[in-house]
């Protein structure tokens, strides 16, 4: 009887391991696709449905959420140094409801830089947590920062 119970548990564990492996492989394939999409500004713009981006101009895209305190710091710093971003295309994207994200950006005077993107498209083409900063020049991804990043580090990439 004991052997049967242990055997059943072992079988369940084998099935669980197969599921772990299947899910992991699927996720890795998805990550690879996402990374390919993020390589050029024109492609990520197309996938996210953003028509206002000019792929020939340098761009700084920030993926954020108003409740994350690292994002709050990032947005505050950009707002304080907005003049330094004049020559670049600046865009903020969030998976939150548009009104909430815009109200948050409004507090920092950045509502004009909000990019309206469908939540499903956004979470399909940008994986992982917030904040993330994508820096493009000559239509190609120069740097992808995960987590908060100081203004000097962003500007250094575009120098």
């Amino acid at each position: 009887m004991k052997k049967k119970i242990v055997g059943s548990v072992a079988l369940a564990l084998v099935l669980l391991c197969v599921w772990f492996a299947y899910k992991s492989i699927t996720k890795l394939q998805q990550k690879e696709k996402v990374q390919d999409t993020q390589q050029t500004l024109s492609l990520i713009g197309e996938k996210l449905g953003i028509e206002t981006l000019d792929s020939q101009k340098p761009a700084v895209l920030i993926y954020f959420n108003s409740e994350c305190h690292f994002c709050q710091y990032e947005v505050k710093e950009i707002s304080k140094n907005l003049s330094k971003f004049k020559q670049y295309q600046l865009g903020f994207m969030s998976f939150e409801p548009e009104i909430k994200a815009k109200n948050f950006l409004k507090e920092y005077g950045l509502q004009a830089f909000y990019l309206s993107v469908d939540e499903n498209r956004l979470t399909t083409h940008i994986m992982g947590g917030v904040p993330q900063v994508f820096i493009y020049d000559d239509n190609s991804l120069k740097k992808h920062f995960k987590g908060e990043v100081k203004i000097e580090a962003i500007l250094k990439v575009l120098e």
Partner: peptide, 13 residues
């Protein structure tokens, strides 16, 4: 190892 790898792939950025 499979469990931790699964977590790091699915929860990691």
């Amino acid at each position: 190892l499979l469990f931790i790898t699964f977590l790091s792939i699915n929860l990691g950025s």
